[in-house]
Design a protein around this nucleic acid. Structure first.
Length: 215
DNA sequence: GACCAGGCACATC
DNA sequence: GATGTGCATGGT
């Protein structure tokens, strides 16, 4: 066992599940949209909404920005919370246009922490959404923390269950090699076992990681 | 039919 | 500052 427990856990998750190839999305902009739509929502539902946007050929900043809100609501409907998500997507588009002229490249040039602060000022973008955009759309070295991360690692008594979001993020970032590819796939692996393993194995002893260490 | 999903903002105490 | 609640669809 390595002295770096978090890295060791990752290696086993990776060995067990293979490269998750996250984020599922063809372009950085699609990743950003998906990050907003997946808030407290099953990804299968988000896919339906994304697909609506693709079929309508509007999965581009300028085209979405020009779309009427009523139409946007219809496209987003299958992802749930569609009224509020329409507003949130619009808020993001306003920010993306006014601050970056819809340019992903301009965004990438900004320092990760500075950009994180900017994103958090957008109504509808919280920490997980901001970090997903930073890591998966822009390739920044920011570890994404979600409900599965907190649940799984607190159940293993590796963190306190009510440790604040940024404390968890720093805890991972301090212990892991500062490599975008590791942050990327680690979070993806956590989500994989979170939904695939836990849900299908309710009697796993409340420990999603346990099977990795006992088999 | 209950329960959950890759959160977030806002109200209230 | 902590705790509670609305938001809504679709799968299990």
């Amino acid at each position: 066992m390595s002295s770096n427990l978090l890295l060791e856990i990752y290696k086993r998750l990776r060995q067990d599940g293979g490269d998750q190839k996250w984020w599922p999305g063809d372009t950085p902009f699609e990743v950003m949209v998906g990050a907003i739509l997946t808030q407290n929502t099953a990804w299968t539902n988000v896919e339906k909404a994304i697909n609506n946007l693709k079929l309508a050929k509007v999965l581009h900043p300028k085209k979405l920005d020009r779309a009427p809100l009523a139409q946007l609501r219809v496209w987003l409907k299958p992802s749930g919370f569609f009224n509020i998500k329409t507003k949130r997507l619009k808020h993001f588009l306003d920010f993306f246009k006014s601050r970056y002229q819809f340019s992903v490249e301009k965004m990438k040039r900004v320092d990760a922490i500075a950009l994180r602060h900017e994103l958090l000022l957008v109504n509808g973008i919280g920490k997980e959404t901001a970090d997903s955009i930073l890591l998966y759309a822009l390739g920044k070295k920011i570890f994404v923390v979600d409900a599965y991360t907190r649940r799984i690692f607190s159940r293993h008594n590796l963190i306190e269950k009510d440790l604040p979001y940024d404390d968890i993020r720093n805890w991972f970032e301090k212990q892991l090699p500062a490599a975008q590819e590791i942050y990327n796939d680690y979070h993806a692996q956590i989500v994989r076992i979170g939904k695939d393993y836990c849900r299908k194995n309710p009697d796993c002893g409340r420990c999603p990681l346990e099977f990795l260490f006992h088999k």
